[in-house]
Amino acid sequence: MSVNLAAYATSSGEAFQFWVLGTVAVVGALCTILMRRAVHSALCLAGTMIILAVFYLANGAYFLGIVQIVVYTGAIMMLFLFVVMLVGVTAADSLKETIKGQRWWAVACGLGFGILLVAGIGNASLKEFAGLGAANSAHGGNVEGLAALIFTKYVFAFEITGALLITAAVGAMVLTHRERTERAATQRELAEQRVREGKHLPPLPAPGVYARHNAVDIAGLLPDGTPAELTVMQTLRKRGQIRDVSTEALADLKALEQRSEERLGRDRDEEEATR
């Protein structure tokens, strides 16, 4: 990935890289829009973005390539993942279309749009290209070249984007921040409230824990064998991720009872026989 290579010509190595990684990038993009779980989509998108970073590097945009990896893939995509976590990481979306004709229109428009873009690019006479060699070496390197442009020609835009970033940060805080309008209840007040309402006076019961595996998502069973959802933590309950084992447990219980019955019956028979 020498300077010359990115400057005046493309090597067959770059061509190979393009075809392999390009295919992967398209597959990643398709996966992004087709995966049912948002977290999978995010991961596919991150992969695509890393491939794009490689393409930036191949195109002589060394600074942007690194920024793409650090800022985009590293920061922005992680932000996405955080939000996905907040919203529910395992919740799968239904891909069934609810708006009539939406999918067909989307596909038709997409096809038409893509064909038009490709046709437009194909129409443009782009047989020759200048290469970045001269531009990158003018100031001693790609980063220096960019810096020279950013702090001279584009300095106003740069400052304005700075202002934009600050505004965005403040905006995000304003949007997500919830002002507390009253004093938080103390532990004592909470306890008194529980007594007043007359429910769950003791601490919440523990989930059904089995020796075989970690089972925080399995409800503990009440004496009659029915599962007590209260034993599962609130977050899992809200996401509907309680693993239902009640029938299994009930079956086990039934089998246990039957076995003890059999045992007791046999003992009785033996007693009678001895008499």
Binding site: A25, A29, L30, T32, I33, E97, R103, A106, G110, F113
Partner: peptide, 13 residues
Amino acid sequence: ALLFTIGAAGVLI
């Protein structure tokens, strides 16, 4: 162009 179109289709779908 291809990635852009895929992205647009994703927005719509």
